[in-house]
Design a protein around this nucleic acid. Structure first.
Lengths: 249, 249
DNA sequence: TCAATAGTGTCTTTTAGACATTATATG
DNA sequence: CATATAATGTCTAAAAGACACTATTGA
């Protein structure tokens, strides 16, 4: 609701003044590296949070659009400059107690990018395998990850959003660089969903969905052990998949 | 991003102070009445907005959860008390220029309820047919509706969200009161999507999806012109539909 | 009886899944 | 040649869509 200036009518209806309010943006950036889905995390500067990891996040500046804050958080805190990344709002987390230091309403974003070739992030930032977010099944070699604030919940929500959106949108191509092979695209689904897909049926589904991918005339170089060269494709204009590509039960 | 208190490290990295920031909640409440999908709108108190309609919205109070603000906006501005309504976040609108009176970040909600028996809202509030939101196809009897701020866009986003969610979730039952007949549930899909569905195939789909609806032993009274009495059902535990009920092309 | 609405059965088309087969590369 | 990966074809099972048919009410 806008109208902060003068909308709320007679004094009896007027809301309480804003007092100590803060709006921030936190970004859950997912990428596929080495066949696994990974999440970008940073070490908070706050010493009171030593030993914890957090999503990159920044306060929203005056006159700054929320999307710009998201890009700035990635750049300033993780050295990630990804202007072409897919960026969408996840949801807004507004529990009054979510930050013990004061009320902060956080607009969480989901970002999807192809894997940066190098371990790009400068600063104290890096990618973790999303499997380490799972509250169960940890080992000595992979202790349970501790995230600051409610960032574990945000991360899990982002993960579920990404998994769900692969089903009914063409978003998987946001994880690969153009041009790409269908094996690469299939690898995205397999990494995000954690399942193996039948290459033949996957191909039939993808190429049979109008506008999902468009073929080029290029061929990819085979791997070191040979194999038929794969055709390369680019993203098509389709946003939604009809019908959806359902996760195997 | 929380950590308003002390997270941002050295002064060089510190974000600008919050200054004049405001967070509000706007609610797009949809219901099905008389076979059509309708949206709840109110008249803003602000005289500068005379002639416009708006979504019910309120500032978020200190220590108030966002969901609570949504319920309060419905109650205070439209007299709608619907604690059991389906309420979910739509997205957050943060364009610095969206409110000419000052920066207001608005967390928009989508609310779905069964039709209130009476034209319940007190105050200057009422339901409009969502067809009137369409930017094209207006007549003299139905002039184009003018909404305040960016509330037209929010309303259209809410509409599309509701339409999409009927496909792959069991959310349609949020529009009907229990117990309900399958014809009533089908009427929800037809009103929200604006299409006619085959009763037989709809029944097969709904009853064949585990946990969507559970039968009772009750029968509904036939209409004034007769007809076989319909069985009544209640909502089942399923949240998602597998596979989805796709909108007809 | 008829009209109206609820519910069932059946057939066809489409889509998904399993998996065999062919094609093109490396060593 | 063998092996590896890409691409195509075929069969079966599941689901969607069209629509005939039966069931139960009011007038």
């Amino acid at each position: 609701m806008p109208g902060a200036g003068g909308r709320d009518g007679p004094p009896a209806d007027r809301d309480a003044p804003p007092a100590a309010c803060a709006v921030a943006v936190d970004v859950a950036l997912l990428t596929v590296r080495a066949g696994t889905l990974q999440l970008l995390l940073v070490e908070p500067d706050d010493d009171r949070l030593a030993g914890l990891l957090a999503l990159p996040g920044r306060r929203v500046r005056d006159e700054e659009d929320l999307d710009d804050t998201a890009h700035r958080a990635l750049a300033e805190l993780a050295g990630v400059h990804a202007p072409d990344a897919h960026l969408e709002q996840l949801r807004t987390y507004g529990d009054p107690a979510r930050d013990p230091g004061g009320r902060v309403v956080s607009v969480a974003y989901l970002a999807l990018t192809p894997s940066p070739g190098e371990p790009s992030p400068r600063r104290r930032a890096g990618f973790i395998d999303v499997g380490r977010l799972d509250p169960v099944g940890h080992t000595d070699a992979s202790p349970p990850l501790r995230l600051a604030y409610d960032h574990l919940r945000i991360s899990l929500d982002a993960l579920e959003r990404a998994r769900a959106k692969l089903e009914y949108t063409a978003l998987a191509s946001a994880f690969v660089t153009e041009p790409f092979t269908l094996a690469e695209l299939r690898g995205v689904y397999e990494a995000v969903w954690g399942v193996a897909l039948d290459p033949a049926n996957f191909r039939r589904k993808v190429t049979g969905t109008r506008g999902f991918v468009v073929p080029t005339r290029e061929l990819a170089a085979p791997g070191p052990e040979g194999g038929r060269p794969a055709k390369r494709y680019r993203r098509g204009p389709a946003q939604r998949l009809h019908p959806a590509m359902l996760r195997p039960a």
